[in-house]
């Protein structure tokens, strides 16, 4: 059904289409990773393809192959009802984090899928608007879905985040901080107890007014 798409891709890009197959009935094109973005945009805009539904994006790790990783993109066309799988092979022995173009500018839905692939597989998407970990936490070491990541590995303990957190959509000086309130939650903190004895309200804020004297 999506043979027409494969033909359209071949006629437009020629050499950049490295391989095509239809194993188990799923039409697949393995493409040049340098043309990844162009081919994706062609698939969305060309009327023969019209792949306007973003379905899935993931990475696969083949530790024995030379381009070690595969980025796999599944697309569907709403009007024509055909599907295609697009693959690109990236990464070699020297690069820790292989790179490929992001398709988020083409399909907004790719945003979280690319973040997930970056998080779990360690593939960097160039041009992604907000590439940070999504399922694990920022201090996480390694990329758990890689084959060389042991499944029983224990992650190191992380420090309690002491600075007020700011996240990507928020600039560093935007908004009120919502870090820990220093008053009530630190009753047992030695630094806090010490500063209370000195009569300071917040040990981290030298400008803070001293606590009012206790009424006897």
């Amino acid at each position: 059904m999506s043979k027409a798409v494969i033909e359209a891709l071949k006629s437009r890009f020629g050499e950049a289409i490295w391989d095509v197959h239809a194993q188990f009935g799923d039409d697949t094109a393995v493409v040049d990773p340098d043309k990844w973005f162009e081919i994706a945009r062609f698939l969305k805009t060309d009327p023969r393809c019209a792949m306007n539904m973003f379905v899935d994006l993931c990475g696969v790790d083949y530790p024995d192959r030379d381009p070690r990783f595969e980025v796999v993109l599944h697309l569907r066309s709403l009007e024509k009802g055909h599907r295609i799988r697009l693959k690109a092979r990236i990464g070699d022995a020297d690069t820790e984090l292989p790179e490929i173009d992001s398709v988020t500018p083409i399909w907004g839905g790719a945003n979280w899928f690319e973040r997930e692939t970056y998080d779990l597989m360690g593939i960097v998407f160039r041009g992604h608007p907000d590439l940070r970990r999504i399922l694990t936490y920022p201090e996480f070491k390694g990329h758990p879905l890689r084959k060389d990541y042991p499944a029983n590995l224990t992650q190191p303990l992380i420090k309690f985040r002491d600075v007020p957190e700011k996240f990507a959509p928020f600039g560093p000086d935007e908004g009120m901080s919502f870090g820990r309130q220093t008053h009530e939650f630190h009753r047992d903190d030695p630094q806090m107890i010490e500063s209370r004895k000195k009569g300071l309200r917040d040990p981290r804020d030298p400008q803070a007014k001293p606590l009012p004297p206790k009424e006897s």
Binding site: I134, Y137, F167, P169
Partner: peptide, 25 residues
Amino acid sequence: VVELSGETITKADVQIGYLHRGFEK
């Protein structure tokens, strides 16, 4: 995480992953 101006949301960040159990692995 939302940034509010009055009661209107001006920016938002949705964070998931609190139930990540590594099924694929």
